[in-house]
Design a protein around this nucleic acid. Structure first.
Lengths: 156, 156
DNA sequence: TATTGTTATACTCTATAACTATA
DNA sequence: TATAGTTATAGAGTATAACAATA
């Protein structure tokens, strides 16, 4: 019942590992008083200056949810709203320096955590794992008709 | 810039795959009007009948948060509170038949999703992946002084 | 006194519906 | 008319502090 030798199926193992990785980001974000959705917001802003509407699509939230999300981030000084030049109804959202450095910190710590999780594997096995994981990601992206490298929107 | 051939590091790849797996569970839970925390609640109850206090520890939430969480699940008919025999201050929480069947459904669909994600890998590679993932999990659990198979508390 | 659980309160996060301003 | 964004409202989810009942 409590042995440490039982083998996990690839499905169970991958699920457990995924929750562990997700939880790791959650804890690192919480260290900086960031919820996961605030973290995702900062993450998508690292290489974009989207409108509120585009943010709603990127984060898969209603536009009314984006209003509050961005307002709270702005109140903390992590993002700013700038009027869009072309359309006076529109605003664009971008990171402040503080927001950028905060998301960089959280990302770095998270990546260090994942690196530490993998550190016990011999280098050759890490390479093997990276290869297998890449193939799963590519196959899954293809199955859903998504270009993996242009739609990536998670920090880390 | 948008090619599909770039290789991911093991860290980036594992992070992306983890978010994909997590998002899959989130969507399957949402199909049944379950938030992730409600899903985790039902998940931990599948093989336990904990007190409110124990639930707080298992879900890493304050006991006052558990009160509302369990109340909402109880209102939906997914769990019941039963008085604890030994300590009259205590209540124990358990799944109803409806709660059990709901979590079984969500789990089954989620597992089918992960299975589908892995289906493109040749069987031998799936075995290899399972082995590598198991080794990462065991090493990480050891690093944190946790017995992997008694403390598992995620559905799936 | 200490512990178990709830309540009161305040905040974040989310969606729906109604609204304003601009296109 | 249609679109971009906000506001009003309601509810889930969370923590802190104070409380009642029991140990």
């Amino acid at each position: 019942m409590a042995g440490s030798e039982r083998a996990l199926s690839s499905v169970d193992g991958l699920a457990q590992l995924s929750f562990a990785v997700y939880g790791t980001l959650e804890r690192r974000a919480a260290e900086r008083e960031l919820s996961m959705i605030q973290t995702r917001l900062l993450g998508v802003l690292r290489d974009r200056r989207p409108t509120m509407n585009e943010l709603a699509r990127l984060l898969e939230l209603d536009k009314s949810s984006i209003t509050g999300l961005v307002a709270r981030a702005e109140r903390r000084g992590l993002v700013v709203r700038v009027p869009s030049g072309r359309d006076r109804r529109s605003v664009q959202v971008e990171l402040t320096d503080e927001g950028r450095s905060l998301v960089a910190e959280v990302s770095a710590r998270f990546e260090a955590d994942v690196t530490a999780m993998l550190a016990r594997l011999p280098s050759a096995d890490r390479g093997l794992l990276a290869d297998l994981v890449s193939r799963v990601l590519v196959a899954d992206a293809a199955r859903r008709g998504i270009d993996l490298f242009t739609d990536a929107d998670e920090p880390g």
